[in-house]
């Protein structure tokens, strides 16, 4: 086991980014799979959204927006280019970052699960609005789909959120601590 704090500054930064990017790749790879217990009405958790929330909770609005943009582009590539996920995930990043969680809630797990629940609903609503504007699906169908998708996805995402949030948060906190004490 190497001592991370003994690494040179740039080495540490690279390692930090490497872990971060690897976690995004893992999220993107779980997305098309439907593992047992991860499915409700054929709908799975939205891992990229959980990642954006985990990232943005303790970061600035700009950082949240950039993460939303990057992961939105990836999810666009994995599904369909129009309508775009960049808008919905950027909304999620910006809103989560501007929540200022620490001021209101202390307990991490519960509050992150709650934020993910709310943000999933926001993200699916943004997508549904885009579908309504594009106009190749009927409005009634979009909004019945929206209810079903938003609810099952929100329940599953919020339940699975701690699994991703806990290790990532631990890692980022550790890196922060090392940076501040170096």
């Amino acid at each position: 086991m190497i001592q991370i704090s003994r690494l040179p500054y740039y080495g540490r930064q690279m390692l930090n980014w490497g872990v971060t990017i690897a976690s995004v790749i893992v999220c993107a790879l779980i997305l098309p799979s439907r593992l047992p217990g991860m499915e409700l009405l054929g709908i799975g958790p939205n891992w990229l959204l959980i990642w954006v929330v985990a990232w943005s909770v303790k970061r600035s609005v700009l950082q949240g927006a950039i993460a939303g943009l990057a992961l939105g582009l990836i999810q666009d590539g994995m599904t369909s280019l129009h309508p775009s996920h960049t808008l919905s995930l950027m909304c999620v990043g910006i809103l989560t970052a501007s929540l200022k969680k620490q001021r209101y809630v202390q307990e991490d797990f519960i509050s992150v699960a709650l934020i993910v629940f709310g943000m999933t609903v926001v993200a699916e609503t943004v997508l549904a609005l885009q579908f309504s504007l594009v106009g190749d699906r009927s409005l009634a169908e979009i909004w019945t789909d929206h209810q079903q998708i938003a609810l099952s996805s929100a329940i599953l995402s919020s339940l699975w959120a701690p699994i991703l949030y806990y290790p990532l948060n631990l890692w980022w906190e550790k890196m922060n601590w090392i940076e501040n004490n170096a």
Binding site: A28, L29, L69, A70, I74, G77, M78, L81
Partner: peptide, 17 residues
């Protein structure tokens, strides 16, 4: 990061799949 994500989008997530 942004340009990699853009490439992933343009290639339809090919390498990911």
């Amino acid at each position: 990061v942004i340009s990699t994500a853009w490439v992933a989008r343009q290639t339809q997530g090919g390498s990911l799949f």
